[in-house]
Write a protein that binds this DNA or RNA. Structure first.
Lengths: 129, 129
DNA sequence: CTAACTGTTATACTATTAATATAACAGTTA
DNA sequence: TAACTGTTATATTAATAGTATAACAGTTAG
């Protein structure tokens, strides 16, 4: 699994890291129980600070994506990621709403919007690329 | 059209303002050509600084939602909001991708995700509330 | 003409966040 | 013992968010 950071983006680096790791899990490039690089090695690999990686890992841990054993290392949650609860769905709607509102203003039909979502879904369900 | 700000949110106030005005346009509570409050009156109405409102207006202007005539005031774009172009759709996909990736990890099916989107769409197509 | 209103610009300050740089601690493990 | 884990602490820099004043230039109503 390769990490691709955009240092010009206004999206914080640690958040890009979080997203890419989640995408790696969604794409099943990294399976439950599998290990992730240590904060130091990953940081030096992609040329950023140890704390930036740690911040990403802490958030992923907080959200149940990974487990961090004190001296064993970082591991994708062997029990799988916690399933969506009411709170997550509420947050998801909160995130989707402004995207949909602007799309409506810009004359994107519901059909086109849903088609785009489906296209993105296929990106994950389909392959191991 | 009433504005509802959450000062506890980590979403910046000016961005909440942008979103709410876009939602107002999507919901057709404010129509093309209609006027918006001056930066000063809106700021004092909701108890924030003039510059915070101005920042929101500038972004809405930048994105083609509103026009700002030097001494006439602020108006919802009479020609309507510019339709989605390739760039917008690219950005939209970029915004949707992490939401979909996490949903997949959390075992939200494509059907359920699309259903949620449809539900949100209905919120706008339906009524004037 | 004056007064009150528009958006705009400039300056200054505070608080928070992102990211980096070191350094050290405590517990494995080879 | 040496090299590795995550963790914690401290400090610094840069950028962003928000507020507080103040002023400028043009418009409009009295």
């Amino acid at each position: 699994m390769l990490i691709n950071l955009d240092f010009e983006s206004n999206e914080p680096i640690y958040q890009q890291l979080v997203h890419q790791i989640i995408e790696g899990i969604a794409r099943k490039e990294i399976a439950p129980g599998e290990g992730l690089p240590s904060v130091r090695s990953l940081a030096s690999d992609i040329g950023i600070n140890l704390h930036t990686v740690n911040k990403a890992y802490q958030q992923l841990k907080q959200d149940g994506f990974i487990l961090i054993h004190r001296q064993k290392g970082v591991v994708v949650n062997p029990d799988g990621v916690p399933k969506a609860d009411a709170n997550y769905k509420k947050q998801l709607e909160k995130n989707l709403r402004p995207l949909i509102a602007e799309s409506i203003c810009r004359d994107v039909s519901e059909e086109e919007f849903l088609r785009l979502c489906s296209t993105i879904f296929e990106t994950y369900q389909g392959g191991s690329a």
